[in-house]
């Protein structure tokens, strides 16, 4: 995030606090697509991702007065997006959407390349068809199989070009943890990408 972009965000926030709804729309234009990409990357489901983005913006709208600007708007906003995506992901897990998928960290080997998760085959279920199409991409498939914590960091890094420090602040974890997770996620994706070629 450039300094100019951050400054412009501040202006939009000030205007929104004054009740200028057009500035809210502008925030949607500026960050909606990237938020969608992050959420879609985390959930692998277009409809869920869209719902998350909508919920996230509603939270921004209703809580804008609580935003003091101690962190950048993007850090605050993407934290909301990430948390909502996490909630939705775990909500679906609890209710069995992906009951056959174990995505625990134990499945992810130390070298970051052995991802042996099994995705249930529901290709012929109509409501799963779109998801399947979306998951056909090798890379997306690989992302989907990454442990949740790895997915978060690699998406924030690549989609929003966040620094390690920003990601650590957003996810409230150590800098070293971010560094390690990004590296492992990247190795896994590289491995998968090479396999597909």
């Amino acid at each position: 995030m450039t300094e100019n972009a951050a400054e412009y965000d501040k202006k939009l926030i000030s205007r929104l606090k004054l009740g200028d709804k057009s500035s809210f729309d502008e925030l949607v234009v500026r960050y909606g697509a990237k938020a969608f990409q992050i959420s879609f990357g985390l959930l692998s489901n277009r409809f869920d991702a869209e719902e998350v983005v909508q919920d996230a913006f509603m939270k921004v709208y209703t809580n804008i007065e609580k935003f003091r600007g101690d962190s950048s708007f993007t850090t605050w906003f993407y934290r909301i997006v990430t948390n909502l995506s996490r909630n939705k992901y775990h909500w679906h897990r609890r209710r069995g959407r992906d009951e056959n998928v174990s995505i625990s960290d134990n499945r992810f080997s130390g070298d970051g390349v052995q991802l042996d998760l099994e995705i249930p085959d529901r290709a012929f279920e109509p409501d799963r068809l779109l998801e399947r199409i979306e998951a056909e991409s090798t890379l997306m498939d690989a992302i989907k199989k990454l442990p949740e914590k790895f997915r978060e960091v690699i998406l924030l890094r690549h989609i929003e070009d966040m620094s390690y420090r920003e990601i650590a602040g957003l996810l409230e974890c150590e800098l070293g943890t971010v560094k390690s997770r990004i590296a492992r996620a990247r190795e896994a994706l590289k491995f998968k990408f090479a396999q597909a070629r």
């Binding site: 697509a33 969608f36 990409q37 879609f40 990357g41 277009r46 890379l139 690549h158 989609i159």
Partner: peptide, 9 residues
Amino acid sequence: LKEELSNSV
């Protein structure tokens, strides 16, 4: 990665 996710929007 960027391409895939960008195309998803």
